[in-house]
């Protein structure tokens, strides 16, 4: 499990570093999507979340959910295209799970990917993800997850 400047970035996930999101291919072929620990640290405490609805087809790098923290509102952009097959309904009542457990209870949506093989190659994983995030954190003058 990679830890970059205090931010947990699991090796087995696929990341879009620019959009600060992760994807995990599940055993049933669906893909779970969420925000990274780094994205959460930059946002601060998330207080509201409005996901797109199940059944909607979303293109790669388009928004699957809108989150709010400190009066900032922004999109969570999916790393891969697909149809939303499930949204994490628990987040509406407990948006703080996104910050406290971004790769577990804080997941946002599950997609049935339309082109996993074609799109996953453009994502980074493992050690490459850790070094890409470290470069991004340096460029953004980030102190570390523990301080954020």
């Amino acid at each position: 499990m990679a830890n970059v400047k205090g931010c947990n970035l699991p090796d087995d996930l696929y990341y879009n570093v620019e959009n600060n999101v992760w994807a995990r291919r599940e055993a049933d072929g669906n893909v779970t999507v969420g925000m990274t620990a780094y994205a959460c640290a930059l946002a601060g405490q998330i207080v509201s979340v409005t996901p797109k609805k199940a059944g909607k087809a979303i293109e790669q790098n388009k928004s699957v959910s809108t989150v709010e923290s400190g009066k900032w509102v922004g999109p969570v952009k999916t790393p891969v295209s697909g149809e939303i097959v499930a949204v994490n309904e628990d987040l509406a009542g407990k948006p703080a799970s996104i910050n406290s457990d971004p790769y577990g209870a804080g997941w946002m949506v599950k997609l049935k990917p339309s082109n996993w093989d074609g799109e996953a190659g453009g994502l980074v994983t493992g050690a490459a993800a850790a070094s890409a995030f470290e470069a991004k954190m340096n460029a953004e003058g980030f102190g570390g997850c523990s301080q954020a």
Partner: peptide, 13 residues
């Protein structure tokens, strides 16, 4: 964010 040199939303506010 690049112009601001940070992506920390609280710091930007």
């Amino acid at each position: 964010k690049a112009e601001l040199g940070t992506a920390d939303m609280g710091a930007i506010s």
